[in-house]
């Protein structure tokens, strides 16, 4: 099949282009990781002695540790909320007759196609005009809204592929609707649900604008990093960057693996 579409010359061009792109994509991250182990206050090469100094000072810095735990809590709760709400909504969109289907689906997934900063500003102006103080629980709800479209789309894709007959069979054998969802539908979707939690967690963990607009004092990790980047350089930023990169990358990759490979598996099963 290859030779039908791509001749030798094109193949070598495409291969070189792909490799070059990989270098461009990974170079700065590699540089950051190297610098995080570099002693010396200034970010210049050549490399000096290797050190763990920045990682140690990071652990000692309460503001980073606290903001990390705030982010961890926000992202865990937001991802679980969004996945639950998303699962229920996806079920309704997939299996029930929803009036004004297109409109309601549009409303639910709309936050995906609107610049984040507009949603953040909208919420901030809203809470100011009705006189609510910025607080962490608002960030939680805001971030749940932000990752909800991802959850709905992911889970709807999965639920669409489950034939209605499964549920109908259990109901005609005397199960209730709720019971058949919890005992049949949810276990079938378990890999997708797990992937969705991971995916929404990663997005919420890195989310900046909503957290920046909706809270004043209890800051999240992205805000702490941002503050340090715009107010003056601290060498431990490289260490934070490396840690956050590794953390998000691991979670994101697991989620993506499940989604991509499950998808190919489903296609395979269908073909058989």
């Amino acid at each position: 099949m290859n030779s039908l579409i791509v001749n030798k010359l094109m193949l070598s061009f495409l291969t070189i282009f792909f490799c070059f792109s990989l270098v461009v994509i990974y170079l700065p991250i590699l540089v950051m990781i190297i610098f995080s182990f570099n002693s010396g206050k200034y970010q210049t090469l050549p490399f000096r002695e290797p050190t763990f100094e920045w990682y140690i000072s990071l652990i000692a810095d309460n503001s980073f540790i606290n903001s990390f735990f705030t982010s961890l809590m926000m992202a865990s709760l937001a991802s679980i909320f969004a996945t639950i709400l998303g699962f229920l909504a996806a079920y309704a969109f997939s299996k029930a007759k929803v009036p004004a289907h297109a409109l309601l689906f549009g409303i639910v997934v709309c936050p995906l196609v609107i610049p984040m900063i507009l949603i953040g500003i909208g919420m901030r102006l809203q809470i100011v005009s009705i006189g609510i103080e910025p607080a962490l629980w608002l960030v939680l709800l805001g971030q749940t809204l932000y990752v909800l479209p991802l959850a709905v789309i992911n889970l709807k894709n999965r639920i669409d592929k489950i034939p209605k007959s499964m549920e109908e069979a259990s109901i005609s054998l005397g199960s209730t609707r709720i019971k058949s969802i919890v005992l049949i539908l949810a276990p079938i979707c378990a890999p997708s649900i797990f992937a969705t939690i991971l995916l929404t967690f990663t997005f919420s963990f890195d989310e900046f604008v909503i957290a920046y607009f909706l809270t004043n004092f209890e800051i999240t990790l992205p805000i702490r990093i941002w503050t340090s980047l715009v107010t003056g350089f601290e060498p431990k930023i490289n260490a934070v960057g490396t840690a956050v990169f590794m953390f998000s990358l691991t979670l994101g990759l697991i989620a993506q693996f499940i989604l991509l490979f499950k998808q190919t598996e489903i296609h395979k099963n269908r073909a058989q």
């Binding site: 994509i25 990974y26 990093i225 960057g241 994101g252 990759l253 993506q256």
Partner: peptide, 13 residues
């Protein structure tokens, strides 16, 4: 892969 990490940190790098 780098897509799944923070926007800010990628810009900073």
């Amino acid at each position: 892969a780098p897509f799944w990490t923070s926007f800010t940190i990628r810009a900073f790098s």
